[in-house]
């Protein structure tokens, strides 16, 4: 669920479309956009305070095969929330392994690659200090 929450909607849509046959569903809670108040801590470790909100879309549904799925995803994309809830439900059924290989693993790899790329660029901006030899000795 955490992975789906952070996945770029366009990418999930692409992988999902390529996955093929999926069970029908009915909504238990139709996709709804809202806000979540994000907290920080004073001095990074102290008492919590309210930093500001972020947009989140949530959704709950039931597959015709009986499994229930929930989603809380970042942003306001209702289709994205529905797909995430479908996947959450299907991960409890027979298609779990196939879904993991076709959708979740690529999302995970992509997330890691994006992170690694930014980490690598940050690493290139790391200062390598050297001390000049002074003429006193």
């Amino acid at each position: 669920m955490s992975l789906l929450a952070k996945a770029p909607p366009a990418q999930l849509a692409r992988l999902w479309a390529a996955f093929g046959e999926v069970p029908a569903y009915s909504y238990l809670r139709a996709p709804e956009a809202g806000g979540v108040m994000v907290q920080g801590r004073a001095g990074a470790t102290g008492a919590p305070f309210n930093l500001g909100e972020m947009t989140v879309t949530r959704c709950s549904l039931k597959l015709e095969t009986g499994e229930i799925g929930h989603a809380y995803v970042q942003g306001r994309d209702k289709d994205h929330a529905t797909r995430a809830a479908q996947i959450d439900a299907m991960m409890q059924g027979a298609q779990a392994a196939a879904l993991r290989a076709a959708v979740l693993d690529p999302l995970q790899e992509d997330l890691q690659a994006r992170r690694a790329r930014r980490g690598a660029k940050a690493a290139a901006t790391r200062v390598e200090f050297f001390t000049m030899v002074r003429g006193e000795d």
């Binding site: 709804e32 809202g34 994000v38 920080g40 801590r41 990074a44």
Partner: peptide, 16 residues
């Protein structure tokens, strides 16, 4: 926006 809730305090020590 309806408020869904509050997050846990973000852990800036684990920041990328």
């Amino acid at each position: 926006l309806p408020r869904f809730g509050s997050s846990a305090p973000v852990k800036t020590a684990e920041m990328a």
